[in-house]
Amino acid sequence: MSRSRFILRYRGRGPTPDADVARVSAVAEVVVVESTAKMLLVESAPALLQALVDSLDDWVMAPEHAFPLPDVRRRVERPPDVSDP
């Protein structure tokens, strides 16, 4: 089963409820990589995690993804075709 990284964020009042965190942590196929007052960074299969999040109140979930460093400089997209006569 392939695992990817996801972020779970608690949208309720205050920090993440201990009981919810315990439920997530108790699932053997879910690895908690990092936790903060409002979020968990986890590794899991997406379907399994989605089902778990759906069973909890006030949580949202998103895949971890990266934002690139902004850059407006021109760049080369491909080299010249030297086979041209």
């Binding site: 972020i7 979020m39 990266a66 934002f67 690139p68």
Partner: peptide, 14 residues
């Protein structure tokens, strides 16, 4: 690195 994760950004905002 030239990339920042949404987790790191959300955590920084908090």
């Amino acid at each position: 690195s030239g990339s920042a994760s949404n987790f790191a950004i959300a955590k920084a905002i908090d």
